Measured scan of single mutants.
Amino acid sequence: NITNLCPFDEVFNATRFASVYAWNRKRISNCVADYSVLYNFAPFFAFKCYGVSPTKLNDLCFTNVYADSFVIRGNEVSQIAPGQTGNIADYNYKLPDDFTGCVIAWNSNKLDSKVGGNYNYLYRLFRKSNLKPFERDISTEIYQAGNKPCNGVAGFNCYFPLRSYGFRPTYGVGHQPYRVVVLSFELLHAPATVCGPKKST
């Protein structure tokens, strides 16, 4: 009989979020998941679920829940969905086509923008091939755009693969920082350890 609540607040209220190319993952297990707390949290810009209804989450049990978190621009949030393409979905964070879970995003301009620009948040701009679902690539190898080998030196046709967002408070909404948490639900042939409040007695 599990009684402790799942530590969703640790994920959602973290002081610093990860850059999207180096997205953070927390495994959540052996706890009671009260999703209504999240669902009623006012400032969400997006709360979209795939393969599961957000209002039914509290009735369900899962083997594991993974909480992935990172920061992207407002106009990139739409790429955090199954079957998407674009710089983020291709080179930074890719969801599987059969994704079961929820994508939760909110504007973090007050936290993550600075006058003069916040350059701490990076994304991958160049990559030889697209990421596989949930693949994480933190390499900083110089990207070779031409035929000539770069030998690890940036220059003509040789690019550092990461780019900084440089968030400023005055940017338009599409270019403002958004914090994103992706909850993915794993249902294995194993005992369920993460259940909603109704199922955990």
Rank of each mutant, 00 (worst) to 15 (best):
A18H: 10
Q84R: 12
C31N: 07
L122Y: 12
F17V: 07
L187I: 14
D98I: 08
R16T: 15
F160T: 14
H175C: 01
A145W: 01
D34P: 07
G117L: 03
T100E: 07
P54T: 10
Y143M: 06
P161D: 01
C49F: 05
N120T: 07
Q79E: 07
E135Y: 06
S29A: 11
A192N: 13
P169S: 06
N30I: 05
N75L: 13
G152R: 10
R163K: 15
D137M: 03
D68I: 04
P177D: 00
P169F: 04
R127C: 02
V115Y: 11
V180I: 10
Y143Q: 03
D9Q: 12
P197A: 15
Y171N: 00
V20R: 02
G74H: 04
F156T: 06
F126M: 10
K110N: 11
Q79F: 03
A18I: 04
S53Y: 09
N58L: 08
S29G: 11
G146T: 04
R127Q: 03
A22N: 13
P82A: 03
V103G: 01
K56I: 09
T55F: 10
E76L: 04
K56C: 07
V65L: 12
S200K: 13
R124V: 00
F17R: 04
L57E: 06
G86A: 03
Y39S: 14
N1G: 12
R73H: 05
I142C: 04
S29F: 10
R124F: 00
A105N: 08
L57C: 05
L187S: 15
P149A: 13
F17L: 05
E76M: 05
P54Y: 13
N147W: 06
R27L: 11
L38S: 04
H175S: 04
C61F: 07
N87V: 15
S113Q: 02
I28H: 05
I88P: 01
P149H: 11
H175L: 00
W23E: 00
P177G: 02
L95P: 01
L125E: 01
Y123W: 10
Y121C: 06
C150V: 01
D68F: 04
V194N: 12
P161I: 03
T201R: 14
Q79M: 05
V180Q: 01
L162S: 02
S78D: 12
A42W: 09
L111G: 09
D9C: 07
S139A: 11
I104Q: 00
S113M: 01
R27Q: 13
V77W: 05
V194Q: 12
N109W: 06
T201Y: 15
T3G: 11
N13A: 08
V173G: 07
I72K: 01
A89V: 06
D68W: 03
K198A: 13
D59A: 11
L5E: 13
N4A: 12
A22P: 01
V20P: 07
P161Y: 03
F167D: 00
Y93S: 01
W23P: 04
V20Y: 02
S184D: 06
I88C: 04
F160W: 11
N151Y: 10
S19V: 01
H189Y: 12
Y119W: 04
E141L: 08
P191K: 13
G174S: 10
E135R: 08
E141T: 13
R163M: 15
F8G: 04
S139N: 11
N157C: 02
L162G: 01
Y123L: 15
P191T: 13
R25F: 02
R127T: 02
C31M: 06
I72L: 13
K199D: 13
Y171M: 04
G152Y: 07
V37N: 12
A105E: 01
L162N: 04
P161G: 04
Y121N: 08
S69N: 05
K110V: 08
F134Q: 09
Y93W: 01
P43G: 09
N92L: 01
N87K: 15
V11N: 03
L5C: 10
A42H: 11
K199W: 15
D59S: 14
V115W: 15
G196W: 10
T63C: 08
P82K: 04
Y123M: 15
I72M: 06
V153E: 14
K199A: 15
S36F: 06
S78K: 13
V173Y: 13
T15P: 14
L125A: 11
A105W: 11
S200D: 14
D34V: 05
Q144M: 09
V182I: 09
S200V: 14
A154Y: 04
P82H: 02
V32T: 13
I142F: 07
N107K: 06
T201M: 13
C158S: 02
N30Q: 08
N130I: 14
N87H: 15
N40W: 08
N157D: 04
Y121V: 08
V77S: 00
V173L: 15
A46V: 15
V194I: 11
K110C: 06
S200F: 14
Q84N: 07
S113Y: 01
Q144H: 06
G174C: 03
L162Y: 04
Y66S: 08
T170F: 04
Y123C: 13
E186D: 14
A105M: 08
V77M: 09
N24S: 13
L38M: 11
T15F: 06
N64F: 10
K94N: 07
F160D: 12
D112S: 03
A33K: 08
N75T: 11
S53M: 10
V153A: 15
Y119L: 06
K132P: 07
G146Y: 03
N64A: 15
T15A: 11
W23S: 02
I2D: 12
C158R: 03
R127P: 00
G174P: 07
G116H: 10
A33W: 14
V37L: 13
P161L: 03
K148D: 11
D68N: 03
G101A: 01
F62S: 08
I72D: 00
N58Y: 08
R73K: 15
W23H: 04
T193P: 12
F99L: 05
G166S: 11
P7T: 11
P149G: 13
F126G: 03
S113G: 08
T100G: 05
S164A: 12
F41S: 12
N130F: 09
F17I: 05
N151S: 12
S113W: 02
F70Y: 03
A89R: 04
F12M: 12
F41W: 14
Y165L: 05
N87Y: 15
K199N: 11
P7E: 13
N130A: 15
R127A: 07
D90P: 03
A89Q: 03
I142M: 13
V11W: 07
W23T: 01
S108K: 02
T3K: 11
G196I: 11
I104L: 11
S129Q: 14
Y50M: 03
P191W: 09
G116Y: 06
N109A: 07
P191C: 09
I28S: 04
A22E: 11
P197C: 15
A190L: 12
G101T: 01
A105F: 08
N147S: 06
C6Q: 05
D97R: 11
A22G: 08
V181H: 01
N109Q: 06
T193Q: 13
V153P: 06
F160V: 15
G172P: 00
L131P: 01
F185P: 04
A81M: 07
T3A: 11
R179E: 00
N107G: 07
